[in-house]
């Protein structure tokens, strides 16, 4: 299981990578493994306002549906169409090609509410 350094994590198994006041968001390796083969992804269009800890999309494997939570409050500036077309990319490369959306943060300080790599890894082992 991969837990890359330098990312922020949520307890709902999303990761965020900060670039200026933009956060790139995806789901963790742990999450994709638990879901199994991902077959469908529903993401909101660019321009949608999202709120921290509130679902903004859904992700489906063959026999499960989960919400994807926004780690921060802000506006979606970009959506990864490649993963909605071929959701298996998330299984293959959750931290790279498998990113889902970019969010422009309303309050960049909010990122500090997320947890560190170490804390996240620990939470998955519980």
């Amino acid at each position: 299981m991969d837990f890359p350094e330098g990312l922020y994590y949520s307890k709902d198994h999303e990761w965020g990578k900060v670039e200026g006041n933009i956060v790139i968001v995806g789901i963790t390796d742990y999450a994709q493994d638990a879901l199994g083969d991902i077959v469908f992804l529903e993401l909101p269009p660019v321009g949608t306002d999202v709120e921290a800890n509130v679902p903004f999309g859904t992700i489906e494997s063959v026999k499960s549906v989960s919400d994807v939570y926004s780690p921060v409050t802000g506006k979606i500036t970009e959506v990864n169409d490649a993963v909605t077309d071929a959701p298996e990319i998330i299984n293959q490369d959750p931290y790279g090609e498998g990113w889902m959306v970019k969010i422009e943060m309303n309050n960049p300080d909010e990122i500090k509410d997320l947890i560190s790599t170490e804390e996240y890894q620990k939470s998955t082992e519980e």
Partner: peptide
């Protein structure tokens, strides 16, 4: 497409 159905999505 069983994720539409009651045994997976339940109340939704």
């Amino acid at each position: 497409l069983q994720t539409r159905e009651q045994h997976i999505r339940r109340e939704k």
